[in-house]
């Protein structure tokens, strides 16, 4: 029980630089937005697993974005269907992609997948920039506020903290 608790505490504590928290938020956002069983989903999942992104912020971001992405399915379909069927000028590119190696596994010819993927990859740089700026600016004050909360103070003055510190070494 204590070990599990310490494991989660370590997860919260590790990779908690502003940049890593930002990456965590972005990965969570992408994983929630991208349809599963597509190549891009697995690529992002792999990158998330191997990167030193902040895990809890990714989970939080994922949980917040997931209902949003379900709600926007119709919107994604309209964007995807428009790109896939309305503009003949890009059909030759789409045809080339459709017959190219690997690319068809992105399921880009599915209107919802294309709409969701383009929206997700379009938004993520902006999200990264905003989150990074905000977290950098407010990082110290947030940490200070967190440490000043009753729970933190209780935790920091507890014997359990000593045990945790010892186990961490």
């Amino acid at each position: 029980m204590t070990r599990t608790l310490f494991f989660f505490l370590r997860l919260l504590e590790r990779e908690n630089s502003p940049l890593q928290i930002t990456w965590g938020i972005c990965f969570g956002f992408l994983l929630a937005m991208l349809p599963t069983l597509t190549l891009q989903f697995f690529v992002i999942l792999t990158l998330f697993i191997i990167s030193r992104a902040h895990f809890p912020s990714a989970i939080l971001s994922f949980l917040i974005t997931l209902p949003l992405s379900f709600g926007l399915q119709v919107f994604f379909h309209h964007i995807g269907a428009a790109l896939l069927t309305i503009y003949p000028s890009i059909f030759s590119i789409l045809e080339w992609l459709y017959n190219a190696p690997i690319v068809p596994y992105t399921r880009f010819n599915h209107s919802v997948v294309l709409g969701a993927s383009l929206t997700a990859f379009g938004i993520v740089p902006l999200l990264f920039w905003i989150c990074h700026r905000m977290i950098q600016r407010k990082y110290d004050s947030i940490v200070e506020w967190l440490l000043d909360t009753r729970i933190s103070r209780t935790w920091l003055n507890s014997d359990l903290k000593l045990i945790y510190d010892r186990s961490s070494k």
């Binding site: 379909h77 269907a81 896939l84 003949p88 059909f91 010819n109």
Partner: peptide, 19 residues
């Protein structure tokens, strides 16, 4: 569409297009 032949599955909530 615009002289380019495409074929599509029109599902209730999505369209799958083949080029």
């Amino acid at each position: 569409t615009g002289g380019f032949p495409i074929s599509a599955h029109y599902l209730s909530n999505a369209t799958i297009v083949h080029y």
